[in-house]
Design a protein around this nucleic acid. Structure first.
Lengths: 208, 208
DNA sequence: GTCTATAGCAGGATAGAC
DNA sequence: GTCTATCCTGCTATAGAC
């Protein structure tokens, strides 16, 4: 197959993303990736230094995309808290993340390994929390009333904001299969839940 | 070493739990487990059918413990919502889960693999949500005001209740290392956050 | 119940032809 | 840029002595 190097590299990354998400990084082998692309195993080592390099490339790409996406995100809503606008923005964010659900699943798996390696999930979290921070900067509910410290704010945003969203994106397909329900409806139910649990703290006036 | 079969089996399980949590199920090998226990690789196959059998034994054990724990859990608090009591109960639950943090980390990693296998995490979630259901049964905030459907209730409990708690337990050590902070303090900050985000929906009168 | 030994294969990675 | 061939290590799992 003569598709040019960059095309092949992209195909390798796509197949790797799929297989890592399916079986985990250690559960998927370089040989499987090569088979999935329809190339020889050796060719992968022309395009990547080693197996880990494939994973890091995927993580770097999603971090770049996320960073770019956040930079171009909607401007801060000034002053008045508007529940519907916040919900729409969140729905939009989740749709964006859903396109990257495979690599995000892998990032989650890697983040739960207790050995310490660079934690890409925390990197993503810090990026997106910084953005949320700016988004709510104009609102009177900024950092919500009663955040005792920077540390509490971080804990709140990470465990009750970022983690539920990322987990939802990563597990949505499993959930719809397990409970045999519709994906779009599930998203709306998640938004209901997330509004009640997380967003009301930012926006005391929103739906209860 | 002559310690009797059951002792050895326990040691194998303990070492496996540690290594699976450290490197993931596929990242840890049977040989590493044997080395950690100080026994021969072959002996592991006397005690377990195969590598997967070790993992399933660990999952089964934690599910049994959790089931037992939930059965003997505090009786439902009748009528009045008491914020402090709920916080104490939750702190207690987290302390219990922290003793199983390793195997819970593994359960999380496995749950994010997109291939479908038996999902032990969802099993645990269903067990513990059923218990929470009973705990709040006497409260006027049962299933919180405004849960449109059983599906919404489930989504709410899972993504804004169960997942933040389990993730907190699995990532607490990483967090304290990354942000160089104290574990007990972090737990209190998490309880603050969780009260604000999740529990207020159960208990409209609790701290805001 | 524990060990030694080894089968048998798959893994990551490299060398060199084309 | 791609493929073939191959190295070597490490893996899961089994057989059989003690």
């Amino acid at each position: 197959m003569r598709t040019g190097g960059n095309e092949t590299k992209k195909k390798i990354l796509a197949a790797a993303e799929e297989l890592f998400a399916e079986k985990g990084f250690d559960g998927a082998s370089v040989g499987m990736i090569a088979d999935a692309v329809g190339i020889n195993k050796g060719l992968i080592y022309y395009h990547f230094k080693n197996k880990d390099d494939i994973l890091v490339s995927l993580f770097a790409a999603v971090i770049d995309e996320l960073s770019e996406h956040l930079k171009n995100g909607p401007a801060p809503h000034g002053g008045a808290a508007d529940g519907a606008a916040v919900r729409d923005k969140l729905r939009q964010e989740i749709r964006f993340l859903e396109k990257r659900k495979r690599i995000l699943s892998v990032m989650l798996m890697e983040a739960f390994k207790r050995e310490d390696k660079e934690n890409f999930l925390l990197k993503c979290a810090e990026m997106s929390m910084k953005q949320e921070d700016e988004y709510f900067a104009g609102s009177r509910a900024h950092k919500f009333s009663g955040a005792a410290s920077e540390q509490e704010y971080l804990v709140f945003e990470f465990f009750t904001g970022f983690i539920p969203v990322i987990t939802f994106v990563a597990m949505k397909d499993k959930w719809t299969r397990y409970y045999n329900c519709d994906g779009d409806e599930l998203l709306e139910r998640f938004l209901d839940s997330f509004e009640k649990a997380h967003l009301t703290v930012h926006e005391p006036k929103a739906v209860r």
